[in-house]
Amino acid sequence: MKTPVEQSLYERLGGIEGITSIVDDIVENHMSNPAVNKRFLPLKDDPQHFAEVRQHLINFLAAGSGGPEEYTGKDMLSSHKGMNISQGEYMHVIDDIMKALTKNNIDEQTQKDVLTIAYSLKGEIAGV
C-alpha cells in the first residue's frame, strides 16, 4: 500500500467515487451559500445543463488531480469570462470547497494541495 506521500492527489481524494462525492457537496454548498447561490440556483431550472456542468466539474477535478478521466470542457478563462466574479465571491467558493473536503474526511495536507490549486486558478476566474 502506498503511503500518503506516494499517492497521487487523485488517490488521496478517493478516486472517481470520492471526487464525485466532493463535487456533489461543493455544488450543494454553492446552492445554499447566499453569497454565490444566485450563480448556481438557475442550474436547477435546466436539469440537462446541470448534469453537464456537474460532469465537467467531476472530470476537471479528476483529470487535474492525476486521474484517467478526460476533461473536455472549456478552459477556466473562457468558461468564466464576462461573469464578473468578484474576489469576495471567489473566496466564498473556496470556503465551500474546503467545507466539502472536510465533510469528506480529506486530510489536511490534501486540503492544502487543493487550496493551492484553487488559488492558482484565481486569475482565470475572478474579475475576468
Rank of each mutant, 00 (worst) to 15 (best):
I97S: 07
K112E: 13
S78R: 07
H56D: 14
K99C: 05
A51D: 05
G15N: 04
G88L: 04
P47H: 02
E69R: 15
H56Y: 14
Y119S: 01
A51V: 08
D45S: 15
R39P: 03
N105G: 01
K81S: 14
V128Y: 00
G88S: 06
V36E: 02
V128K: 11
S21W: 01
G127Y: 04
I58H: 05
L121M: 14
Q111F: 01
T72R: 10
T3I: 13
I16M: 10
T20V: 09
I106V: 15
L57W: 02
Q7H: 12
H56L: 13
L77P: 02
T110C: 04
E89Q: 15
S21K: 14
I26V: 15
K2G: 00
I97W: 11
D75H: 07
V53Y: 00
Y90N: 09
V53R: 03
E11S: 14
Q55V: 11
S21A: 10
E11I: 11
F40L: 12
A62P: 06
E28N: 09
D46G: 04
R39N: 13
G66S: 13
K2M: 04
M1E: 08
T20P: 01
E17P: 00
V128C: 02
E52D: 12
L41K: 08
Q55P: 04
L121I: 11
S8L: 15
L41Q: 07
D96E: 09
V27S: 01
Q87P: 00
R39G: 14
M76I: 08
L115A: 06
Q48L: 14
P47Y: 02
G123Q: 01
F50T: 04
V128S: 04
P34T: 07
T72M: 07
D107S: 09
I16R: 14
K99P: 06
L101Q: 00
P34S: 08
L77F: 06
I125E: 00
I58D: 03
N59R: 08
N105H: 09
G18I: 06
D96W: 07
V128R: 10
H92D: 15
N105V: 05
K38E: 08
N37P: 06
G66Y: 06
D45P: 03
N33Q: 10
A126V: 07
